[in-house]
Write a protein that binds this DNA or RNA. Structure first.
Lengths: 239, 239
DNA sequence: CCTTCGCCGTTATCATCGATTACGAACTGT
DNA sequence: ACAGTTCGTAATCGATGATAACGGCGAAGG
């Protein structure tokens, strides 16, 4: 009798029935009678438990957020917080594609019914962003970073769900992901090149002024590291 | 029936009535009877003209896309295609905030009713992207760039509309905008810094090897230009 | 053991909505 | 003037969200 007995309470059955029906059709296309039929309850039970249909749907949306968050928590944390941010993005997209109608119910609430759990989702995301900040890889405030990432992430998912033939490809999501996360955390490759250039410049200045001479081998190595990644083949913008 | 005479035909009145009602409440919260009442037509007229309610809503969504595109066309084209891309983004956000319910009807279609005008919107966007490519400011394919920008743009708008208290701020949109457009077209500021560093390094190398000596003043100026933008004072918007 | 109260399920019912049919009036082309 | 089309009106149907009324069943209390 510890936590959950063999609970098949009416409330749970209604929620589960709604979730199952939500796997096939949109929330607004589900009738309360179909829910009651599948849940083996009478119609007034819905209104005794949730007030009205909106209450039921928001409850289902909140449960969806719980699944969403447990999915995200399953991702192991590595020592690269930026990479963790990317996997969190991909996990988000995967959830949306796997549960299209539930996702739309969660992120496009109708009327005044707004699920509370979205703040929790944002809190989880902010934790990941905070780890980036602690690693010195953040270029803006925590809140702005979190809002930017989540907005773009939802946008990619909504377009893929609403217009699968136009936006259902597998390129857009990584492109937007790398764009936003790169902007938020700073593009490592660019930073590396700039840092290398700065180091080289300082070394050369020091050598010139006679403060701290640098070997020709080190200078050559730094100069080589400064070249753009794809410099050997295709055309490149001149400096 | 080819041209539009002055007389307000029944179809026109229905469309206008729906648009007006759409200014106050969501599309699904509008009853066909309310539409007919306002349009001064009988109920069968809707079904004679549009087949069913979905057809009417799709027609309204298409009209919304027309307004959306004329809004965008109003933006004058400058000689900076990347800046035009940014103003197009802001125009998009402005339209969404001014017509929240119409915007949701346009970009989150219910069921199988998908407005086809979104391809026109994407075509307009692709034109702007194409101008960036012609200016040598594109880092990916046209289609991917267009999908990335539109997805992120819609995401920012949807979150601002669905959760105004959490995402209704005025910082997120420019942040995501600059992130995505910067990634698509190449961040000019970063390129400038890298270019400056490269020029500086080359100048120093030339000075060292005695090929082409550089004055100490030029070296100092280049070194100063290499520092990160937000190093001394707070971040400032680029001119 | 019986009573009473509260919880839960069942049935019936209401109001509204999307959608359709039937019918009549007005307009048009010949 | 007449026939055919178009369009407006009223009535209606099936489904849906939401409630009310009633009845049984178990738990608290005497």
């Amino acid at each position: 009798m510890g936590g959950t007995e063999f609970t098949s309470t009416a409330r749970e059955r209604i929620l589960r029935a709604t979730e199952e029906l939500l796997a096939d059709k949109d929330a607004l296309a589900i009738s309360t009678r179909a829910i009651c039929d599948r849940a083996k309850v009478g119609m007034p039970e819905i209104y005794r438990q949730f007030g009205d249909k909106q209450g039921l749907l928001t409850a289902v949306a909140d449960i969806g957020f719980e699944r969403f968050l447990t999915d995200k928590r399953r991702n192991p944390l590595t020592d690269d917080p930026v990479a963790d941010l990317r996997t969190a993005w991909d996990s988000h997209v995967g959830f949306a594609l796997r549960n299209p109608y539930l996702y739309r119910l969660m992120f496009t609430p109708t009327g005044e019914a707004k699920p509370q759990a979205i703040t929790e989702a944002q809190a989880i995301l902010l934790k990941a962003v905070e780890r980036c900040r602690d690693a010195g890889r953040l270029r803006m405030s925590l809140e702005l970073a979190g809002r930017s990432i989540l907005s773009a992430n939802v946008g990619v998912c909504m377009m893929a769900l609403s217009f699968p033939d136009l936006f259902g490809d597998s390129e857009t999501s990584p492109a937007v992901r790398d764009a936003v996360i790169g902007k938020v955390t700073g593009d490592e490759r660019e930073d590396t090149r700039i840092g290398t250039a700065t180091v080289l410049a300082q070394a050369l200045v020091d050598t010139l002024t006679g403060t701290a001479p640098t070997s020709a081998g080190d200078l050559d190595r730094l100069t080589r590291a400064l070249r753009p990644p794809g410099a050997d083949s295709g055309a490149q913008p001149e400096a």
